[in-house]
């Protein structure tokens, strides 16, 4: 709290603040002729009253002018320490996300992988009030969808797009590069993680691999990979038994997993074979990403004119009472 952070919505009213001297110059009371007040003994109560009435009028008028000028504390961002993280959700928006976990177009009450991801990530967002979260999508290109922000409604609007029809292929390297880009010029505080949600993988060439490795280390970003494993997919953990299949082009998931393990940053992979698995994976990340961190919270603006109106009312009532007493 450096300065007194008051903003005036109608500062022009402040120019009329000098009216507060009026009560010292004029009185609302009627003159009462007294023959010769020297005859009266000095009365401390009366003397106090001659001071108190204009003082009350003056203060009340000043309060009214200040109230009219509309003081308020503007909306501001306050620094806080809490539990949470800087997260970037990196979401696969390839065409295959339109299919169910069983690998076919959803029918009846079935849900597509994209639809399940949108819904469960939406619930995840609701449980993380303090995080600073950004959203990126990727297909053949990388889509910048929402900057790092504390506003969950903006995150929701970006995550909801995963339920829209998918686009093209899975170019995971471009997506990761964009997600890492979110952390450039961000103060290093608490944990930083990328949550990659994809239903496929792609070959990353050695040059790009090296660039990603450097960026992950430089920005101190952890990685979670939620692999939405469709029916018939061999998964990310088992090494290919057939040597003919043991190459990144035949088994991109397995090789991408191996690459992630060599990143030199904390990395954890989850395989989700159905919406329930996805829910468990998200819950695990929810538990893990709860370290103390420095976050910013937007505090809504506040109107301060209320008490001033009350003060003005009190002054007006007092004057009215005094005025009513004169007979």
């Amino acid at each position: 709290m450096a300065a007194w952070p008051v903003e005036w919505s109608e500062p022009g009213w402040l120019l009329s603040l000098p009216v507060a001297v009026l009560p010292w110059l004029f009185s609302p009371l009627r003159r009462a002729d007294v023959a010769w007040d020297v005859l009266l003994p000095p009365d401390p109560w009366s003397l106090a009253l001659t001071r108190a009435v204009p003082l009350a009028g003056s203060l009340a008028l000043a309060a009214l002018v200040l109230a009219l000028a509309g003081p308020g504390v503007p909306e501001r961002v306050v620094d806080k320490i809490g539990r949470g993280a800087h997260l970037v959700l990196l979401l696969d928006r390839s065409q295959s996300m339109d299919n169910t976990f069983a690998g076919r177009a959803p029918g009846g009450d079935e849900i597509s992988k994209g639809g399940a991801a949108a819904r469960l990530l939406g619930e995840f967002l609701e449980r993380r009030p303090h995080d600073w979260i950004g959203v990126a999508g990727f297909s053949t290109g990388a889509l910048y969808q929402c900057p790092l922000t504390g506003r969950r409604s903006a995150n929701q609007a970006a995550v909801a797009t995963v339920a829209l029809p998918g686009l093209a292929y899975t170019h995971v390297a471009k997506g990761l590069a964009l997600a890492l880009d979110f952390f450039v010029d961000q103060p290093l505080s608490g944990s930083r993680a990328i949550v990659l949600v994809s239903d496929g993988a792609a070959v990353i060439d050695p040059k790009t691999q090296q660039m990603l490795r450097t960026a992950f280390k430089r920005h101190q970003v952890r990685l979670y990979w939620i692999f939405l494993r469709g029916a018939g997919s061999p998964g990310i953990h088992d090494a290919p038994a057939d040597p003919a299949e043991d190459n990144p082009h035949a088994r991109p998931e397995y090789y991408l997993h191996r690459f992630f393990q060599t990143l030199g940053v904390a990395y954890q992979a989850f395989e989700a074979e159905n919406p329930e698995g996805l829910r468990r994976a998200i819950a695990a990340i929810d538990r893990l990403e709860k370290r103390p961190f420095h976050y910013r919270e937007v505090r809504a603006g506040r109107d301060l004119s209320g008490p001033l109106y009350w003060a003005a009312l009190a002054g007006a009532l007092l004057l009215l009472a005094v005025k009513s007493l004169e007979a």
Partner: peptide, 29 residues
């Protein structure tokens, strides 16, 4: 496709402005 579903403009000025500012031909799929 959409990057952001419709958002109220005053409450989400920062986010909308950033996403508009990052519109790029490189996003093309």
């Amino acid at each position: 496709t959409l990057l952001l579903m419709p958002l109220e403009v005053c409450g989400h000025f920062h986010e909308l402005s950033r996403v508009i500012g990052r519109l790029d031909w490189r996003m093309a799929w």
